[in-house]
């Protein structure tokens, strides 16, 4: 009689090295000291299932001639120069070791009077894709997957795809009023900048799908982690502390 193998005893899968290991709480290390590092340390990561607002899938894609870039070239360029492709006012501080599974990056952004310090966990990374996962307090709970694939004989498709729910009721309101459009502009800019950097400027195609219209009222309390509030309202206190100098 053939011995049954328990699922947990199977051989190591091919994708094992591409995923972040077990992460209970985020820990930031190896990012530039100029980064304002708030709302990341000690936070749990969130999937699109944990946020408050409606769930959206947003895809921003660009077609490039294969002669300009293969899927592997697109992703290696994206990983190496990720921060360069963001619009003005937004800074991404990648870990010094680069975009690798399990690493944590810090995000600083400014929108009018609002300030945001948050971050992302590199959930997954291989030669043709990588995925960020957001922490508690981030404007949205979910994933951003950057990928590239072949289309026909001559085309490489580069795309950023977000699967998200706004993280709390305030973010949900902001998302409806202006946040969603702001985000579209940001990712369109990012993908277009990538294309330009690869020597192929062009149009970015946008596809937006509402995956789940329901709001998750059980997540109402997530507002206590709201990173925009904590960053913006905490700014005067941080200024006073800086003026007061180091504690003895």
């Amino acid at each position: 009689m053939e011995e049954q193998q328990h699922p947990s005893e199977k051989k190591t899968p091919r994708d094992a090295a591409n995923w972040a290991g077990r992460v209970d709480k985020l820990h930031v290390s190896g990012v530039s000291p100029e980064a304002l590092n708030l709302n990341v340390e000690g936070r749990r990561v969130l999937s699109p299932l944990q946020g408050f607002g409606q769930m959206w899938q947003k895809t921003y894609r660009m077609r490039l001639p294969r002669s300009v870039a293969t899927p592997e070239t697109v992703i290696s360029t994206w990983k190496e120069r990720y921060a360069e492709f963001w619009p003005k006012g937004n800074r991404f501080y990648a870990p010094l070791t680069g975009i690798r599974p399990g690493e944590v990056g810090v995000i600083n952004a400014t929108q009018g009077p609002m300030r945001l310090s948050t971050g992302v966990l590199v959930l997954y990374s291989d030669d043709t894709s990588f995925t960020f996962m957001t922490p508690e307090g981030h404007p949205f709970a979910g994933w951003i997957t950057f990928s590239a694939h072949e289309e026909g004989e001559d085309v490489t498709v580069a795309q950023a795809q977000l699967l998200l729910r706004p993280g709390d009721p305030i973010y949900e309101l902001g998302f409806k009023m202006f946040g969603s459009r702001t985000e579209d502009k940001m990712w369109q800019h990012t993908v277009a900048s990538l294309g330009a950097a690869l020597g192929s400027p062009g149009d970015v195609e946008t596809e937006i799908v509402c995956v789940d219209r329901r709001r998750q009222w059980s997540q109402f309390g997530a507002v206590k982690h709201n990173a925009i509030f904590r960053t913006t309202l905490g700014a005067p206190m941080r200024g006073i502390r800086r003026l007061a100098g180091p504690r003895r």
Binding site: Q57, Y124, V211
Partner: peptide
């Protein structure tokens, strides 16, 4: 025998 983050996204939807 193989799963990437795109696959996990499909399971969510």
């Amino acid at each position: 025998d193989y799963m990437n983050s795109g696959g996990i996204g499909l399971l969510v939807t």
